[in-house]
């Protein structure tokens, strides 16, 4: 047998993982993109024209301006989580995850391949909603670098969480549990619709303890310049979450948890 040269990063393998996941995602464009955009349009209509007119300005901003970044973030989180958890779970359920297990792909390449598509889907979803907001004159972007940081880092955080849930789930019921019990409630009470000051004093700790609060405030700061959290705290917590979740997922892959028999 002829000796093969040593393997470096398998860029073609990584690119193939991205191509495969994009192809899978594009089979369901209505679910992936149209549904969140329609729901965001409804939010814009209700908060901009039905309810918004009756609510006084918050922090010098119209109510729709205040709410829209939270709607962007809620959809980014959902898109990221659903993309990664369903991709992993479906590939385990049908067993075509074995295609990547038998291939010369490192764990880091497998994770990076999944996460790239997660970030792509979540960013397209989020930027689409932001552009709708701009079209209706309801928002703008004050800092593009910060806006992109929040978009990409929060997608990656929830993409990694989705991978963990996708590896852990043994049924579709389990796969949906985190969305029902954690993601939706926490994002609803995470400062999308109100400031901390609007909450009763005894309940404010709940906002500060909710990670969504930092993500929503971060993106709101990058879009309309209104941020209730101390500077740098949200960014620090997000980077720490990325590190912890990234190491956890890498460890799970290395142990073969949910992947190997």
């Amino acid at each position: 047998m002829q000796a093969k040269p040593p393997l470096g990063t398998n860029w073609i393998g990584l690119h193939t993982m991205v191509r495969r996941e994009v192809s899978r995602m594009m089979r369901v464009p209505i679910q992936a993109f149209i549904a969140p955009w329609i729901s965001a349009l409804l939010f814009i209509f209700i908060f901009g024209f039905v309810v918004g007119g009756r609510i006084t300005h918050i922090g010098g901003h119209r109510y729709l301006e205040f709410v829209l970044p939270g709607i962007v973030m809620m959809n980014v989180v959902n898109a990221a989580f659903l993309q990664s958890s369903s991709a992993i779970y479906f590939s385990r359920f049908i067993k075509f995850i074995e295609e990547t297990l038998v291939a010369p792909l490192s764990y880091a390449e497998m994770i990076a391949g999944s996460l790239s598509v997660v970030v792509l889907r979540a960013s397209v979803t989020g930027i689409g909603i932001m552009l709708m907001g701009v079209g209706f004159g309801a928002t703008h972007v004050e800092s593009w670098p910060l806006f992109l940081f929040w978009m990409v880092s929060v997608s990656a955080v929830f993409g990694l969480l989705g991978i963990i849930v996708g590896l852990w789930s043994k049924s579709f019921e389990q796969l949906n549990m985190p969305v029902v019990f954690f993601l939706t409630p926490l994002s609803m009470v995470g400062g999308t619709f109100n400031t901390v000051e609007m909450l009763p004093e005894w309940l404010r700790w709940l906002a500060w303890a909710n990670p969504f609060f930092y993500f929503i405030n971060g993106i709101r700061g990058s879009m309309i310049g209104f941020d209730e959290t101390p500077p740098g705290l949200g960014i620090g917590l997000t980077l720490l979450s990325l590190l912890v979740l990234g190491l956890t997922v890498w460890r799970l892959y290395a142990k073969g948890y949910g992947l190997r028999e």
Partner: peptide
């Protein structure tokens, strides 16, 4: 996926 995609993806995974 189509047979062509399936075989192509596997080739891609192998670099």
């Amino acid at each position: 996926a189509t047979p062509r995609q399936i075989v192509d993806w596997m080739g891609g995974y192998f670099g």
